[in-house]
């Protein structure tokens, strides 16, 4: 189905962000940027979400939570790491409790760099995520996969799939960012 990407619902989780990126994510939903015109809704519920948007690096305390939210989102889903902290750990990287970027815990599909990431680049990231989302959905339909039977198998799939996507999207985004600035 072609229209599948027209209704992305997003769940936003603040891992250990300084709140800079969170404010920018919220700014996207405000009248100036109004992401709802693309059908994007900020839902607070992982069970309804399609896009997992994480800000800030992952620390030892919230790593299981990030993992759990990820698991609760029904397939197909994409993960968006917003901000330098979420991409690599950023300025908190060397802290004793920080594990690093979000990709240390769950497979990340799109990286949005910037400290703080600008609303424009967040929206750009979401749009990139949508293309991936459609791809994943089509793949799911092709494989005739409704409920994943074997969870371990499913996880393997995700990791493989994302490893290749990761590189592409981060490169693309990085170059986009450079162009913009």
């Amino acid at each position: 189905m072609k229209s599948f990407h027209k209704s992305p619902w997003l769940i936003h989780y603040d891992a250990s962000s300084c709140n800079g990126c969170d404010i920018e994510v919220l700014a996207c939903t405000m009248p100036r940027y109004d992401v709802e015109r693309f059908g994007i809704i900020n839902t607070g519920n992982p069970m309804h979400a399609d896009i997992f948007c994480v800000t800030g690096g992952v620390n030892t305390q919230n790593a299981p939570i990030v993992k759990q939210i990820y698991d609760q989102i029904p397939e197909p889903k994409v993960v968006l790491a917003v901000g330098t902290c979420a991409c690599t750990g950023g300025i908190f990287k060397e802290c004793y409790n920080i594990l690093g970027g979000v990709d240390q815990v769950i497979p990340v599909d799109v990286y949005v760099p910037g400290c703080a990431a600008r609303p424009e680049s967040i929206i750009d990231g979401v749009v990139k995520a949508l293309a991936l989302y459609q791809e994943k959905h089509d793949k799911m339909v092709q494989e005739g996969r409704g409920l994943p039977e074997d969870p371990s198998l499913d996880e393997d799939n995700d990791v493989d799939e994302n490893a290749s996507n990761d590189d592409n999207s981060s490169d693309e985004n990085a170059s986009d960012e450079e162009n913009a600035s």
Partner: peptide, 22 residues
């Protein structure tokens, strides 16, 4: 705000029916 298209609720529901049921 500009807001979504008037047909947005249909896209939402179509998407929901295509998602995994957990």
């Amino acid at each position: 705000r500009i807001g979504p298209k008037v047909t947005q609720p249909f896209y939402d529901v179509l998407k929901l029916f295509n998602k995994e049921f957990v």
